[in-house]
């Protein structure tokens, strides 16, 4: 369970989050929607532990533990996963080596044994096949020369392998064509589990046709201004965000 209480965050003296409060229960898929500049991506970065942000007040609890005290890699080992809106390219680091390094680093932090290479290869192959990722892509530099759709699939592959208990999808639908959107959504749906929660950040209702949320939260001016069920997303599609932009003020 993720609990965000009264979160105030600024970057370079600019206030982005203004007392945001949100709870996502185990097994829940919560969607966050909102206009540009409402603080959605900032929220995802602050939960994941990006250093540029200054948390002025509030707390973020993952299963009761305050993650604000942890560095980004410790949060990952504690079960947090952020699927990036713009996954970064790392030339010279083969995707396979990166995956192995990440998996073993997390295991080490949790005091677990390193994964045997054979088991690791098997797990990667199975997950890659499910997402339609060809094997030769795994030998290339991480995300180097990948299309937008391939990069997003690679994020979901990492999510599947690292088996986090709280996943944040930051505008995973951006830059995806309809086929890629289906593949990525199916990948996410396959990971839905009573013990795993998702925070799905998106501008558009479209993604939520494929990843059907349990709850929908509207963000404006760095706050959650309205919460509801999946029907709220449809309502937003019809009315737009104009009404909400004034609500928080």
């Amino acid at each position: 369970m993720l609990e965000i209480r009264n979160l105030h965050v600024s970057i370079e003296d600019k206030k982005i989050l203004n007392g945001l409060t949100l709870t996502v229960h185990d097994g829940e898929v919560a969607a966050i929607m909102g206009p540009n500049g409402s603080g959605k991506s900032t929220l995802s970065y602050v939960i994941a532990g990006k250093p540029d942000y200054e948390v002025l007040d509030g707390e973020i609890l993952l299963d009761g533990q305050n993650v604000l005290e942890l560095e980004a890699h410790e949060r990952a080992a504690a079960g947090l996963f952020l699927a990036f809106q713009y996954p970064l390219e790392i030339p010279g680091v083969a995707t396979m080596s990166f995956l192995k390094a990440a998996m073993n680093a997390q295991r080490k932090i949790r005091g677990e044994e390193e994964m045997a290479t054979a088991d690791f290869m098997k797990a990667v192959r199975a997950a890659a096949d499910g997402l339609g990722i060809p094997q030769d892509m795994l030998r290339r530099g991480l995300n180097v020369g990948f299309s937008g759709g391939e990069k997003k699939r690679m994020e979901i592959l990492q999510m599947a392998l690292l088996a986090p208990n709280f996943c944040i999808l930051d505008e995973t639908d951006s830059g995806l064509d309809i086929d890629a959107l289906k593949v990525v959504s199916e990948g996410v749906n396959a990971l839905r589990d009573p013990k795993r929660a998702f925070l799905v950040i998106t501008h558009y209702q479209r993604l939520l046709n494929y990843i059907v949320p349990d709850t929908v939260h509207v963000m404006a001016h760095g706050q959650v201004v309205k919460s509801g069920g999946k029907e709220l997303a449809l309502e937003l599609e019809a009315t737009g965000y104009a009404d909400y932009k004034t609500l928080a003020a």
């Binding site: 994941a48 990006k50 890699h73 990952a76 790392i90 680091v93 990166f98 990440a102 997390q106 530099g141």
Partner: peptide, 24 residues
């Protein structure tokens, strides 16, 4: 820094993330 954060967000401690980037 952005690359470093990406790697750390996947569980690599800072020095390991730096080592991976420098090796590349």
């Amino acid at each position: 820094d952005d690359l470093l954060f990406y790697l750390m967000a996947r569980g690599l401690p800072r020095l390991e993330a730096e080592a991976l980037m420098l090796a590349a």
